[in-house]
């Protein structure tokens, strides 16, 4: 970890218990590893994107950073403090510095609370209710570009884009250093998606924020992230600078993801890499390289040996036969 690093994750493992007593008695697998041996660094003032399909473990990873999921093994270093195993009470000041935004723009807002109450909540939770909360609410609404009278609205009276702005306002209420955003543009119209991304970019520049963005939308990644990591079955298969990865993806899975974007041009010739079969179950991880069951470059060796992490330029990846080298 260098002095530049705000967040440093080393060899992180997170697992879930599945099945109840019957499954255990039957001797079936009772644990799935949703995050498996993940390491990365996030530098101050930059944006890091986690990309992957559903079930790849990206949301679990984000929730673990926030202490909502217990760490099984590995370390999380945030502003020089180790977070793994901290109690809720010890996590509280950390959560103030590292707020999280959830996927559903409306659903992540408490339905019976007005926008005013929602935006006051961070102050109340962190013992700052002596501040002029009305003034704070007005300030936050202005920061995210919503009119003042929105304070009296309820979540069901907001459009997706407006609800997302309220979510952003709540996240930045207490001058955080790192915002963790899970699918910040999910469910939004294209014209609104741009607004939200512009807002996040603005806030990052103005407040000197760092961001960790989770998304399955590669176009979003390109517009917002400095560095990115591609997750598959709970592991990072490739991570590096966003532009470098978009220009020359090395891992076959990254290449497949990049080519899997429906193109808004009916005449564009596709050099598409179609992935056969569905994502394997975490209960039955493939042997060797876990991507070999869907990989078109796979050779005999891939189903036996797990590839060791390798470095190509600034990019780290785990693959026996990387592309474009």
């Amino acid at each position: 970890m260098s002095s530049q690093d705000l967040l440093s994750v080393r060899d992180l493992h997170v697992s879930f218990r599945v099945g109840g007593l019957p499954a255990r008695l039957a001797g079936r697998a009772t644990e799935i590893e949703a995050v498996s041996g993940v390491s990365f660094d996030l530098q101050r003032g930059t944006t890091f994107a986690l990309v992957g399909e559903s079930g790849s473990g990206k949301t679990t990873l984000a929730r673990t950073l926030n202490g909502l999921q217990p760490v099984k093994a590995g370390t999380i270093l945030f502003e020089g403090q180790e977070l793994q195993g901290l109690s809720d009470a010890r996590m509280k000041p950390v959560r103030r510095r590292m707020p999280m935004m959830f996927q559903d723009p409306v659903g992540s807002l408490s339905p019976r609370l007005s926008v005013r109450s929602l935006l006051s909540e961070p102050f109340i939770i962190h013992g700052l209710s002596s501040r002029d909360l009305n003034a704070e609410v007005t300030r936050l609404l202005a920061l995210v570009g919503l009119p003042r009278d929105f304070a009296d609205r309820y979540p069901h009276q907001l459009s997706g884009g407006q609800a997302r702005r309220v979510g952003v306002a709540r996240a930045i209420a207490l001058d955080p250093v790192l915002v963790v955003a899970d699918e910040p543009t999910a469910g939004l119209d294209v014209s609104v998606q741009g607004e939200v991304l512009n807002l996040l970019n603005d806030l990052r520049d103005r407040m000197g924020l760092s961001m960790l963005i989770i998304t399955h939308n590669l176009h979003v990644v390109r517009q917002i992230a400095d560095r990115m990591a591609v997750m598959y079955l709970g592991r990072f298969v490739e991570q590096g600078e966003t532009e470098a990865i978009f220009r020359t993806p090395h891992h076959p899975y990254t290449a497949a993801l990049l080519s899997a974007n429906p193109e808004p041009d009916p005449d564009k010739v596709h050099e598409r890499i179609t992935l056969p079969a569905d994502v394997p179950s975490l209960l039955a991880r493939p042997t060797g390289c876990e991507f070999h069951t869907r990989c078109q470059q796979a050779q005999a060796r891939c189903s036996v040996d797990a590839p060791a992490p390798a470095t190509v330029g600034d990019t780290r990846l785990t693959c026996h036969f990387p592309l474009n080298i």
Partner: peptide, 19 residues
């Protein structure tokens, strides 16, 4: 999600249940 969001902000169990 709104309960997860409250937890992620550091709200106590009592507050989550009550509010």
């Amino acid at each position: 999600e709104h309960v997860m969001a409250a937890r992620s902000m550091g709200a106590s169990a009592g507050r989550i249940l009550r509010v």
